[in-house]
């Protein structure tokens, strides 16, 4: 059986198929695949016996559930006003320059996806960003280049 299909079934068996378990299951799939595909949503809808459109509506409501294929590391830059005032655009330019992708895009090697997000709650240490579940604050262009270089190295070692 398709591994995502079995993951969804296992999760549904474990947690139950009531509506409040929809979000945890979606998160589990995102944890595994980095995004929630059309296939996964249909499978979830079948398991929960709810309309597929409802799964899609719920998924798109949450910023942290991607519905398009994403890279291994998802970079989310806070786009809210405090970070913007503290130079979020400089950070964005630095990343775009370094990874050669625009906002919303994924690098050709599928390592990084660059996105914006709503307030991360780190206004006192703005500007802030997340890489997967890790938060980085008080960013400067130099600092962000170091951080991303670090991620590139981890990945290279893994590949070797």
């Amino acid at each position: 059986m398709n591994p995502i299909k079995s993951l969804i079934r296992e999760m549904a068996d474990k947690r139950g198929r009531s509506r409040e378990n929809l979000l945890p299951i979606m998160q589990a799939v995102v944890e595994r695949e980095k995004y929630l595909s059309e296939y996964s949503m249909i499978e979830i809808a079948k398991q929960f016996d709810i309309p597929a459109a409802e799964v899609y509506g719920t998924a798109t409501f949450y910023s942290f559930i991607e519905t398009r294929p994403a890279g291994q590391y998802i970079i989310r830059i806070c786009k809210t006003i405090t970070c913007a005032m503290k130079g979020k655009n400089q950070i964005l330019f630095a990343i775009q320059d370094m990874l050669k992708v625009k906002l919303g895009e994924t690098t050709p090697d599928r390592k990084f996806t660059l996105l914006e997000t709503n307030c991360l709650g780190w206004c006192h240490k703005a500007p802030a960003m997340m890489v997967n579940n890790e938060v980085y604050t008080e960013l400067t262009p130099e600092k962000v280049r170091d951080i991303l270089t670090g991620y590139m190295k981890i990945n290279d070692q893994n590949l070797n």
């Binding site: 059309e38 949503m41 309309p51 459109a53 409802e54 799964v55 899609y56 798109t60 409501f61």
Partner: peptide
């Protein structure tokens, strides 16, 4: 009971749409 239409996204991007 068809649920072809749903509300997707949020805030100023919120729209009425179908599955995917």
């Amino acid at each position: 009971g068809v649920n072809a239409l749903t509300v997707a996204h949020k805030g100023d991007k919120m729209k009425i749409t179908t599955f995917f």
